[in-house]
Simulated scan of single mutants.
Amino acid sequence: MEKAGSGLLPKARVSRAKSGCAKPRKKASQPKLNLAADRAEVAKMIDQIRKKVGSHSGRTAELKANLEKVTSITLNMLEQVQELRNIVESSREGDRKEKDPIEAPSVTLEERSQEAAEQRDESSAAPAAFNGMKKILVVDDDPTTINIISHFLQKENYLVRTSNSGVDGLKKAFQETPDLILLDVMMPDLNGFQFLSIYRKDEENARTPVVILSSLSEEADVLKGLEIGAVDYITKPFSPQVLIAKIKKNLNSGP
């Protein structure tokens, strides 16, 4: 018998140990490569990329088409603007030609100077009959009053000039050299009293009769008008027959 505690193992243990050592260990399994599946996945990814690129390309083409459309519209608008400019320039050129007509080649500079001198002499001459017609200047800011007075004066064969403001009327009084002036008082820019005061300062206008025709009927207004140089004072509303009678009287007798 073998002694207990010796280094030798029992036979049963030895046999089991030997049999256990004889069994080989299993190796760990390695993943297998599936090339077909990988190719399909890559192809799918490439297809997605192509679709994205294609969508961007389509968007780019759309933007390009819109840009061309906008460019075409802009060019058409520029052509229309140029056409309008040409029309405006033609209109301005026509206005300039009407205002500054081209003189005939036969008219010399000397003849033009002589004609201008004659016109100045005529404008500075004393009031005189125009083909036997006396010239009357009507200054009133009411168009209805001007029309009524003009109607009755023309029936009496007077040459009528009109103005609807004090400033313009004063200018025409110096330029037109009328034989008589019918003058309203209440006007916005220059009233009749101011008009008459300025007009009478020129000695050449001292003999031109001025008849005031106004709705101001107070005694102070009438006296003021007569004191600053009016030959008569008629209040509104007025009688056309009385107005014509006083005009004839003042034209025949003078101031």
Rank of each mutant, 00 (worst) to 15 (best):
V14K: 10
P24I: 02
G229W: 11
L67P: 01
S106L: 04
L182M: 09
L109W: 00
L213Q: 03
S72R: 09
L137Y: 05
Y233W: 07
E83M: 08
A22G: 11
I73V: 08
A129N: 09
G169A: 02
L251R: 00
A117Y: 07
G5E: 08
G225A: 07
V81M: 13
V70F: 10
M1R: 04
E156L: 00
R112D: 13
N191F: 07
P105Q: 04
M77V: 07
T145Q: 10
V211G: 02
N76K: 14
M133G: 01
V138T: 09
D232V: 04
E83Q: 12
Q114I: 12
K97A: 14
L137E: 02
M45Q: 14
N66T: 08
I87A: 13
E68G: 05
K64H: 05
I73R: 07
A61L: 12
S165D: 15
F238Q: 03
K249H: 10
K155R: 12
E115A: 13
K3N: 06
Q114C: 06
K11N: 13
E79K: 11
M1K: 07
T145I: 15
V70L: 15
L216G: 03
Q194Y: 02
F174V: 00
I198M: 10
M186I: 14
P237N: 06
R50C: 11
T74A: 10
L153K: 01
I244H: 01
S124K: 11
A206T: 13
S91F: 13
A104K: 14
D38I: 10
K32R: 12
R92W: 12
E118G: 03
L8G: 02
R92N: 15
A36S: 13
Q154I: 06
Y199M: 07
E227S: 13
L84C: 12
K224R: 15
P127S: 04
K97F: 10
R96Q: 10
Q154C: 06
L170A: 00
N131H: 14
S57V: 08
D140G: 04
D221W: 06
E83S: 14
F130L: 11
S113E: 15
E62V: 05
